[in-house]
Design a protein around this nucleic acid. Sequence first.
RNA 1: GCCGAUGUGGCGAAAUGGCAGACGCAACGGACUUAAAAUCCGUUUUCACGAAAGUGGAGUGCCGGUUCGAGUCCGGCCAUCGGCACCA
Length: 873
Amino acid sequence: MSERRKPYPFDRIEPKWQAVWESERTFHTPNPGEAGFDAAKPKYYVLDMFPYPSGAGLHVGHPEGYTATDIVARYRRMCGYHVLHPMGWDAFGLPAEQYAIKTGQHPAITTARNVAHFKAQLKRIGFAYDWEREVNTTDPGYFKWTQWIFLQLYHSWFNPETQRAEMIATYRGSDPDSVRLAYVAEAPVNWCPELGTVLANEEVIDGKSEVGGHPVERRPMRQWMLRITAFAQRLIDELDGLDWPDGIKLLQKNWIGRSEGAEVHFGIAHPEPVPEERIAANAMSGILHRVRAEEKITVFTTRPDTLFGATYMVLAPEHRLVEAITTEEQWPEVRAYRERTARKSDLERTELAKEKTGVFTGAFAINPVNRERIPIWIADYVLLGYGTGAIMAVPAHDERDFEFAKKFDLPIRQVVQAPQGQESIGFCGDGIAINSPLLDGLQTFEAKAKMSAWLEENGFGKKTINFKLRDWLFSRQRYWGEPFPVVWESGKHRTLDESELPLTPPELADFKPTGTGEPPLAKAKDWLRYSDAATRETNTMPQWAGSCWYYLRYCDPGNAARFVGEESERYWLGADSESKGGVDLYVGGTEHAVLHLLYARFWHKVLFDLRFVSKPEPFQRLVNQGIILGEDGQKMSKSRGNVVNPDDVIAEYGADAFRCYEMFMGPLEQMKPWSMTGVEGVSRFLARVWRLVMSENQAGEWVLSGAVQDAQPDRAQLKVLHATIKKVSADIETLSFNTAISQMMIFVNAFTNAAVKPLSAMRTLLLLLNPFAPHLTEELWETLRAHFPGAKESIAHESWPSFDESYLVEDEIEVPVQVNGKLRDKVTVNKDASVAEIEAVALSAQKIIDHLAGKNVKKVVVVPGKLVNIVAT
RNA sequence: GCCGAUGUGGCGAAAUGGCAGACGCAACGGACUUAAAAUCCGUUUUCACGAAAGUGGAGUGCCGGUUCGAGUCCGGCCAUCGGCACCA
C-alpha cells in the first residue's frame, strides 16, 4: 500500500513543536522563590495517576486520563494560574522482578528501559508536563523519603484521646511497641506460594492473587503492619468534604465497613477440667487454666435487642478459647474440624460457603440476660478476624444462624415481631421486641439502646463500633522494593537513623523467592550484617508505599533536605482564594478506589497530624476515567487481538487527532469502545481547521490562505464564535470534552464556506482548540503571526478568550407552540415580547387555529424564550 | 444475596423538567474529476398517506405516578456492566 497522503502535515509539525516546548521550557512550572514565580497567581494542581512502566508500553487507556488532565492544565495556565502538572513512574513492582527471575537481567535495567520507552511515547502525544519534576519511586533520592516516612510511622502512635497521630514520646504506657503505627505482628497472612510472598487483603481477589491469579492460602507469619484501623473513623468522616464521585466514597465506606452494636460477655458454664496432657502440649496453657475460673467469651453483635433470642453460640475454629472449653468427648471431632478448616484456602472456604458446617464443643455458655445455658459450637462461617471471632446466634432473626440451626436442629426463638404481612421467623429487619422481658413492645432502635445500657450497667458488655478494615500488611518477600530502614538485635527491632538513608537494596544475582517465606534479601550476606550484633530486616515494602506520597514529591522533587519543602508544600497543597487545598484535580481508573486512594489518605493524615502537610486530605477532586474497549466491544487483551497501540494511531493520524478522538469518544467517566473510523472523523475535523487558515499553492506547498483577512466577523459569525467560547470554557470546567469538541466542529462548519475568514475569529478558535490539539494550533498561530503582527510567540502564553453574552441573543426568537404537549407550530416573536404578546401570536397562528378547532382553550402556559403550551379539550 | 452505575437511531453519542436524536461515524445521492482518492453540498428514528412540498401517528428498557409538559422527577419491575460477598 502506498503512503496515504496526509490531510495536513502533522508528521512535520508535531515533532517540531515538541522540540520547541522542550528547549524553551514552555511548560516549566516555577516554585515559590524561583524565577518566573508570581505569588499573586492562584495555583492549580492537576494530577494523573502515575503509571507502572510495564514492558508492554503505553496502551490507549493511559492517555485517556492524561489527555483530560492535559487539557485542563493548558486551559488553567491560559486562565492565569500557576499549574502543577507532573508525571513520574511507579517503578517498583512484581513484573520487573519476575522478568528478572526469568532472564537474569537486573530489574533496574529493565525498569530504566521501560521508563525511557514510556516517556518517549508520552512525549509523542505532546503532553504539557513539567518534565523537570519527573519522579521515579525506585530512585534512591526518592525512596530515601519513602523510608523516612516509614520512620515517622514507626515513631508515632494514635492517641485515642486526641484522635490524632502523635510522636511516640507522648505515649505514657509501658509498651510502646504495642501502639506504634508501624509494628510487627505474628498474624495469619495471605501467603501466595507461586509468587513466594504475602499479599495485602486488598491484593487478594476471590482467593487468588490480583497479580497473576495464583492461589493464596492463610498461614501465620511475622510481618510488618501499619495501623490504618486507628484512622478508620476519620477515613470515613473526612470523605465528606471531598469532591469525589459518590460511588467511590461509598466503595471506601463499605470497605472500611463501620457497624454499630455491642460487645456482650457470656460466662462459661461449669467447664470440665481441661485434661493435663492438653495443657502440657499447649503453648497457651495459661489461658486453659484461667478458663476454669473467670474467663468469659465476648461476642460482637449489631442486634443487642435480640439477645433473648440467642439459642447457641459459635466461635471461629481458630478462636483462642476453643481448646480450653472443648469437652473430652467432643475433642477428637473438634480437632479434626479445625485441621480441615486450616487446610482450606480462602478460595475453598468461599466456594464451600453454600453449605454450613460446624461441630459442637460440648461446652455451654451462660446468656447474661436470662442465665440460660446455650451450647457453644465452632463453625467456619464465623471469622476470627472480624469482631471478637465469636457470635451469639439468633437463628430467628439472622439468615446464616437460621440456616445453621436448621441443619443442626438447634432451637429457634422468635424475639422480634415483623411488621404486618411479613413472616417473623427469619425476619432480619426492624420490628417490635417480643419474648424479651426487658424489651417487650419496644421498637428495634429503642430496644438496642436499652439493652446496651443494661449490659453496661450490669458489667456484661457495652456499646461498641466495629470495622471490617484490617491493619495494612506492609511487608513483602520481594527483591524489587524499598528495604525497611530497620535492624534486628537479640530479637528486638530498631530503626536506622535518618542520616543512614537511603538504604539501597543489595546487588543480587539471584532474585528467586526462597520458597520458605524468607525474603531474597536474606541471600545478600554482606548487606545483611549491620553490626556484630545486629542484622538488617530483609522484607521490602509493597508497591503501594511509593505511590502513597508521590504527589507530595512533585511539589519539590529535587529537595535533598526534606521530603518536600515547607513553602512549596504550602503553596501547592494549601488552600488559597480559589482552591480548597490539596490536589485540585486527580484523574485515574476506578481500580484504585480502595487500594491506593485509601492508603494515600492514611499516610497523608499521619503526615498532617505530625504537621508535615497543610491539609488532612490529599486529593480534593477525583474523577475516574472509564475504560476503553476494543473495536469489538470487548475488553482489550492480547489474546483477543483487539489491542490498539497509540503509536500506530499517531503514526497514521497524528497526536492531535489521537488526543481529540480520545476526548470525543464520549463522556470521560464512561466505558466506551474504540473506533478507527471515529479517529478518522476527528482527523478530518482537524484538517478542516487547517484548511480554514491554509491553502495549497501551485507547487503543492501549504501557505496562508488568502481568505484570512483582518476583517470584522458578521453578526452570525460573532454569534457562533461567542457561543463556542462560552461552551468550550464551561465544558472544560465540567470535563465534558466531547461536547466541547462538538461545538468547535459547529464553529468550523459555519466558517468553512465563508469567503473571508476573519483573523480575530480564527485566532480565537485556535486558542479554544489549543488545549485539545496543541501542535496544530501552535503551527497555525505561528503562521498567522508571521503575516499579522501582535501575538505572542507561543500560543501557550496567550490568555484564554472571554465571551460577550450580548452576541448570543437574537432580536427575533423562534418559539415552539404546543397543543396539549404536542408540537404544532413555531412562531417568531421579538426577544422582549411579553407573555401576553407571545400568547396572542401563538393563538393567532393558522396551524394552531386549525388544531384548536372544536376545542375549548383551558389554559395557556407561556415560558418566555422557551415555548408555549396550549391546553385544550 | 447486598451495594452502585448504565439502558436514547445501523453505531459513538447530545439534550438547566420545555422543539428528542446536536456533533461525529457508517450508508446513500449529488458537485468537482478522463477516472479514482481527497474535498465540498445534500439525505438519513420509524410507520402510514402522498408524485412531491407535506400531513398525521408512534418513539428514549418495561409498567404505573406527579406535572400544562417527563429521556430527565417519584414508585415498582427487567436487562447489562462493575464492586463486595458468611463482616454477626
